[in-house]
Nucleic acid binder design. Structure first.
Length: 132
RNA sequence: CGAGUUGGCCGGGCAGUCGCUGUUUACCCCUUGUUAGUCAAUGGUAGUGUAAAUGGAGGAAAGUCCGGGCUCCAGAGGGUAGGGCGCCAGGUAACGCCUGGGGGGCGCAAGCCUACGGAAAGUGCAGCAGAGAGCAGACCGCCUAAGCGAGUAUGGCAACAUACUACGCCGGUAAGGGUGAAAGGGUGCGGUAAGAGCGCACCGCAUGGCUGGUAACAGUCCAUGGCACGGUAAACCCCGCCUGGAGCAAGACCAAAUAGGAAUCCUGCAGGUGUGACCCGCACUGGAUUCGGGUAGGUUGCUUGAGGUGCCUGGUGACAGGUAUCCCAGAUGAAUGACUGCCCAGGCCUGCCUUGGCAGGCUGGACAGAACCCGGCUUACAGGCCGGCUCGCGAA
RNA sequence: UGGGGUGUCGCCAAGCGGUAAGGCAUCAGGUUUUGAUCCUGACAUGCGGGGGUUCGAAUCCCUCCACCCCAG
């Protein structure tokens, strides 16, 4: 059980980002943000953030968004496993208070995990159903 | 106490849990040397890992409006163009900034505002209105003295003379009206046909002197001049001073690569490239086009600096000098955070009670995030703290 | 982060000190049996906001704001 969030658990090059955008395995969306994810072979989750200046005007606001997303990811990353995740922040994100923000984010991470489990389950089930 | 004005400062605090990141130390791992085990050393980027200690956004970090440092282009050198600044003196690395002073404007005052050189070097501009708008002008009005004429009266035989006029012509005038953003000193008296700096007095203005002041400038001083000199230079311009260009994605280093090759054309004491306005100068060098081939990033610059703080000295002050002491962010898909509790300001509600205070509950902290570094300016900003001064009221 | 540019009617735009052109769109009328075309007229507004210079500013100066482009 790790609560750390080091450089290894971040997406660091534009190539990494491009892969997630091109092949999106899981997609979780809400009014305030959009999460895209792709299965990787590293055995650990990696997070990348996209916060447009157009959506959140001030640098302080953008930093706030990134920090909250990182923090909640840090605390929730255990069940995620090998996924490359990109979080896109939408305009209404900055309307939320700190409390509501964390609530929303935790909810979204739970949804992501659920989708992942469903996907794995169906992937395991499929070869049994069609042995030939 | 109220109203105002001005200078400076802070811009939440403490504790706990879990994270991010820089530095240092230790250990792990690797490398090298050595040994029976081991030990030692330097280097750690081949990826770094673990632990501890310690540091980690701002007054504006913002806008990018100025000025520097730094780096490259040649130690940026000569000239032209272009750009900037503009009362005086000082401060400063420098500035378009700051300080002190002067002039002008506003305010009862404290104080505030001020792009504030030159319009007698030249060129230009001013629509509409108006008579006239740049070596001024005459629409209404006022006048008709002189000159010419008309009429009337008187005198005279007559020519004519004299006097008069709600008269005409030739004219005079810039007081008044009117136009305009702006119409070429003001008030009074004299003067005149009516008027006018036409003359005079006072005020204003200009020039020269004298006095004070480093200077801008000032003066209840003296002399001269009847006034000649309208506005606009954030219009061109003139004068004085300043000014090369680009920017850390600058630049440097390492690795790879630009290789090697084919074809065509042009040129040879000139041309090309670079120096990002142009000429000179300087440096480097054959050049251009097409075909095919190839590409990968990392390190550094990177934080010790016109540095902060305390004290002393000089100065009205900006600031300077001396001395002691401190090291205070360096990220790079981009750190400096999240959660919880308590406290401290603030706001709202309820209860007790004489203004006011006490108790409880709820709420709740602005503007905003370093990206090479400094000095300013500008803009944004909840709330709070400390001081100076002015005016009004009251008390002593 | 650095560098550069643009804001004029609903849209595209000219003007760069003296009443802010023009086109498209909109509305009304005419022509037509009706519609398109064509003709005539009009609306509403505007010079991104705030100061300053000037008698007078879209234009000159200062200062904010918004948008766009370039360099990884």
């Amino acid at each position: 059980m790790s609560l750390s969030f080091s450089r290894e658990s971040r997406l660091r090059t534009s190539a990494d980002f491009k892969q997630v955008f091109d092949i999106t395995d899981i997609k979780v969306s809400s009014k305030q943000l959009l999460i895209l994810a792709k299965v990787n072979k590293l055995g650990r989750a990696r997070l990348g953030l996209v916060v447009a200046k157009k959506n959140i005007r001030t640098a302080v606001g953008r930093n706030r968004a990134k920090r909250h997303i990182r923090e909640t990811f840090r605390l929730q990353q255990d069940g995620v496993g090998g996924l490359d995740i990109v979080v896109l922040v939408r305009k209404s994100f900055s309307d939320l208070s700190d409390r509501d923000l964390n609530l929303l984010l935790n909810q979204q991470w739970q949804r992501l995990k659920r989708r992942l489990h469903e996907r794995e389950a169906s992937a395991e089930a499929r070869p049994d159903k069609h042995p030939t």
